[in-house]
Nucleic acid binder design. Structure first.
Lengths: 277, 277
DNA sequence: CTAATAGTGTCTATTAGACAGTATGTT
DNA sequence: AACATACTGTCTAATAGACACTATTAG
């Protein structure tokens, strides 16, 4: 027998959320950056690599496994994005990081404790901004290889000591072209974070072509060569200089600063051109 | 004082989800279709329009307001997608509909009852498949106008009797180009569904160019003219015939069937070319 | 001078846009 | 015959890809 309420106020007064099935949510963050690997030859530019932040779990479940930084949402006070920001601040001491919602993961058994649904976020940062890592269990992993064949993507992550091999199958959904369901062939990271890593890298790869998202990973001043390297790392392919400069020229502003002392011709430093200016 | 567990099994045995703050989730569905509006001239082709399904709320909160079909997730048994499927089946009696996760909406006050986070889905359907509408409160609304100026998007929805005017402000996020936050200038639909409608239409508009998603809205056999009309409705602009046919030719297969009796030259019927065949 | 990257000019290939024309049903 | 859409040929404009060349520094 349903009760009839006279107004929304009256209805809300009698509403008790605990009468209904509830669940927990987390926000997980894929923090992506591009790091420079020094080269022994004084003439050569440093080689760039994509890197992501992983945390070693110190508690059950998945104790000892690597996972993305994340934390439970406080439903009374937080949005998922503010929860993600809180977690990032805790792990890296950084605020003002670019954040973008990626996907909501909700497989019933993704967390062995109870039903936990996780909304994942991509975070991008210029690695030079990172001064201190608060959490001693957090560590950058270079993404040294992404190869794809037979719809299987293999990603190798390494932090120097440890190497993690992710292997994810892409399942083509009908009538979508480029829309895939992902399925980890084995879950190497905790929870379903293998999938989040791939989805995030793919999202970044995609958006780099039609947004200015990449400048969130750049310092204030950069050379076009450095910028091109970041594009190349994300797109995982070599770009031709003239074509790259044609495409990028409206997005940047030339400054009168130069980068010198590199053992070869100095390069002009550019800044991001903010369209709102 | 934290307890130390010897194994994941032991940890899980002592884990009680109710010790933690929980919340409710819903899945909301933006069901999009393209409908044909008959034209009085026997020679002319019918005009096509994008339409979406709305439901009039019969209960508090937002009683009497239109909203997207949606329902609470059963955390014990359902994924968000299966929840969305259940709701769609209930409202339209359709299964096997294309579903794609859109975005997770989590503003703290988006539901006046309690903290409810909603993951929205886009569903696409060929309107000819819709035979019966189970829910008498559900109704198709034509999307008759999307205009944009000064970063304000106006969408007019109409079902013949009622007209709903949505007005949403796009807030450009720095360094993203084409990435916007949306903010409804007034909430005309229940909850934050104004935003979902716009985000869904934008997503469709976007994906139409680089996926085969549009074929989920087409019947098995269609003419290239009809297909072009659907593209035009989604992209909200006229396309040139030769260019359209160039682009589409690899995605379709010519059949030996014809569409005749239209008061003008008959048209060849095509089918979708499934890449997996 | 040399090694290495910085930066540019220009040709070519590919793709998108535009327009005009022909084709073929129904009434 | 007339109308409306179906369908195609071809020119032009814009963009992407490729390559070769010049420029400039530290050592």
């Amino acid at each position: 027998m349903e009760k009839v309420y006279k107004s929304e106020e009256e209805f809300l007064k009698h509403y008790n959320a605990k009468d209904f099935d509830q669940l927990s949510m987390t926000a997980d963050i894929l923090l992506i950056s591009v790091s420079s690997e020094e080269v022994n030859n004084y003439r050569k530019n440093s080689k760039k690599m994509m890197s992501i932040l992983l945390v070693k779990r110190s508690d059950y479940p998945f104790k000892g496994k690597w996972c993305l930084p994340g934390g439970f949402l406080n439903p009374k006070t937080e949005t998922l994005e503010s929860c993600a920001k809180r977690v990032l601040k805790k792990e890296t001491n950084l605020s003002n990081i670019y954040l973008e919602q990626l996907y909501t993961y909700d497989a019933i058994d993704r967390d062995p404790r109870t039903r936990v649904i996780s909304t994942s976020y991509i975070a991008l940062v210029d690695k030079n901004r990172l001064t201190e890592m608060i959490n001693p269990n957090a560590c950058w992993f270079d993404v040294i290889l992404i190869e794809e064949k037979n719809n299987i993507v293999d990603i190798t992550l390494t932090n120097g000591d440890e190497t993690i091999n992710l292997s994810i199958q892409k399942i083509l959904r009908e009538k979508t072209t480029d829309r895939y369901s992902f399925k980890a062939r084995k879950n190497v990271l905790a929870f379903d974070h293998d999938l989040v890593v791939l989805a995030g890298i793919e999202r970044l790869k995609n958006k780099v072509n039609y947004t200015d998202i990449v400048f969130n990973m750049m310092p204030e001043y950069f050379t076009l060569g450095e910028l091109q390297q970041v594009y190349e790392v994300i797109l995982n392919k070599k770009l031709l200089d003239p074509a790259f400069r044609r495409i990028i020229k409206d997005k940047v502003v030339k400054t009168n600063k130069m980068k010198t002392g590199e053992g070869h011709r100095p390069s002009v430093l550019f800044k991001y051109r903010n369209k709102n200016d």
